[in-house]
Amino acid sequence: MSSSIASSSSSSSSSSKKEKKISLKTSDGEVFEVEEPVAMQLEIVRSFFADNEDVTEQTVMPLPNVSTAAMHGILEYCRAHEEFRRRMPEAAPEEEVRAFEAGYVDRKSNEELKEMILAANYLNISKLLDFLTGVAAKRIENKSVEYVRAFFGVENDFTPEEEANLRREYEWAFEGVDED
């Protein structure tokens, strides 16, 4: 590992040993011990610790709207970004970030993606939310009307005649649609 040289310098080794952890408890009761700089990317956590003077290192912050599965996904993203930031504080290595993000979302199903969007929204991680909603848009942009109804869980409340009329009006928009 290339970090061996860096960790031999006295100041960085001492600070990494004492790295502060923050405990976060998900809706299904699992407690995650998260490195402070990573946890602070979660705006809801940052403001909780900034606004409450009586919290201590032992405080376990409950996150009742976040499932354990979603939390794993969120932390994977935040840890990767913290790592990019630590290595290159000035400017993120764009290509590496893109490669990581592409691989990261390829593994997620639509259900997992939506769950993470909800979690990122609740935890108020604007960068991740921005990224995930962009991914969702890319996923549906070339899909059929039926696919989008299923994706958003929206009922079709048009009569068959109304829908046929609308489809006729925008006939050209139905050309070149991907298969579901």
Partner: peptide, 8 residues
């Protein structure tokens, strides 16, 4: 334009 047909 296509997704106008999704729902009202």
């Amino acid at each position: 334009c296509r997704f106008r047909c999704v729902s009202k």
